[in-house]
Computed example of a mutant assay.
Amino acid sequence: MKQTEIVEIMHFDQEAYLAGGARFFETGKRMSALADRVADEGYDAVFLMGVGGTWDEFMQLEYLMNKFGDKDLEVYLIHAAEWNVLGHKRMTKKSVVLTASESGTTPEVLEACKRLKEQDIRVYAMTKPEGPIGKVVGAENCVEMAASHGASGCEGSYYLADCFGLRLLNRRGCFPKFDEFIAQTEHIWEHLIDIRKRFEPRAEEIARKYALAPYTMFIGSGALWGETILFSMCILEEMQWKRTRYITSADFFHGTLELVEPGVPVILFKGEDECRALDNRVEAFLRSGVTGDEDYVIVDTAEFGISGLDPEFRVIVSPWILSSIITDRLAAYYELVTKHNLDYRRYYHQFDY
């Protein structure tokens, strides 16, 4: 297997990835148990709180809980830094907050967690129990997510968050097939490796064509919107110092389309939810001849099959697929072409600001 790691997927440890996936399946049970505790205690609203990449990652769960939830369910995505200065009028002592910090030290999230505890508001965190945030929240309310951006990609974070949010829906009677979903995704990590292998040549092709472009547009919508921002901002802006513009398929036709011209790469991420109709409109515009065929890329998660997965669950795993092929594989080839190490920063975590 070591040989296939080198030949088939560049800079990717398949054994570590599968081991990480197995750990996430087990850890997901704990996330579901936390959701059961919340359901048993009762709640009036659910707040998903992040900052930067974690805020982006929670977007898919906000979308899914609103999609599958009943009309009385209140779900709010909040930015930790903004909540620290603005608060939220709907938040009460009956509310529940789910947050995340892989490092366990994110200052905005740490400050927010301290304030939440002072207000006796329940907060659960995907973070290191021994880290500063974990100590504030309490080990009994933490779930480790350290392997998510290493051995198991961002899709590990998605999986854990979904175990929490979809279980809450299940307890409300809104997502009756929760157990089937968990069973069908237990070994999804193997499928995501195969999907990586399939996309590998295309990842290299896209990077060699566009990684050195001075400016690139990224378009997404629905369940994929958070991942669209995450790749554009966290990977390309922060880790590659590339100038990007990320915009929803809905908003693309209200300003951004006027910047489409030969020489400006436009990359569209097509999803598998209701917003696909909006993606199709963007695709039709790009294919209409307004720019050359070499200036746009269409990446469609529907092209990547996962055997044994019910069609109704495709919308849930579509961000996992995009994370596998874009935030992992395409990022690796951008690094190869730009020769800019993904771990190198000018300012981030270099000094206090």
Score class of each variant (00 low, 15 high):
3 Q>M: 00
207 A>T: 05
190 E>F: 14
246 Y>T: 07
103 S>E: 10
80 A>Q: 12
196 R>K: 15
175 F>V: 03
69 G>M: 01
19 A>E: 14
149 H>G: 02
190 E>T: 07
302 A>G: 06
314 R>K: 12
179 D>Q: 00
4 T>H: 02
189 W>R: 09
105 T>R: 09
11 H>A: 12
263 G>R: 06
22 A>T: 10
11 H>G: 09
342 L>H: 00
148 S>A: 14
232 S>V: 12
345 R>N: 01
261 E>A: 11
347 Y>P: 02
14 Q>W: 01
9 I>P: 07
162 D>S: 10
83 W>R: 03
204 E>T: 10
4 T>L: 06
56 D>Q: 07
351 F>P: 00
162 D>V: 08
94 K>R: 13
94 K>C: 05
197 K>H: 11
307 S>K: 11
186 E>H: 11
255 G>A: 09
309 L>G: 09
155 E>W: 13
232 S>W: 04
52 G>D: 05
215 Y>G: 06
38 V>L: 06
287 R>G: 06
20 G>W: 05
264 V>R: 06
133 I>K: 02
70 D>A: 04
268 L>V: 08
271 G>E: 03
185 T>S: 05
180 E>A: 04
53 G>K: 05
244 T>Q: 05
4 T>M: 03
139 A>S: 15
91 M>P: 10
152 S>N: 09
270 K>D: 04
265 P>W: 03
197 K>M: 11
242 K>F: 07
167 R>E: 00
104 G>R: 07
6 I>E: 04
115 R>H: 12
254 H>Y: 06
310 D>H: 09
266 V>I: 11
165 G>Q: 05
146 A>W: 13
98 L>G: 01
325 I>C: 01
100 A>Q: 08
349 H>Q: 00
199 F>P: 02
261 E>R: 14
332 A>K: 14
146 A>D: 11
188 I>P: 01
43 Y>P: 00
119 Q>D: 07
44 D>P: 06
57 E>Y: 08
28 G>F: 12
138 G>M: 10
133 I>W: 02
114 K>M: 07
115 R>A: 11
5 E>Q: 06
141 N>C: 15
208 R>A: 11
93 K>G: 09
262 P>D: 14
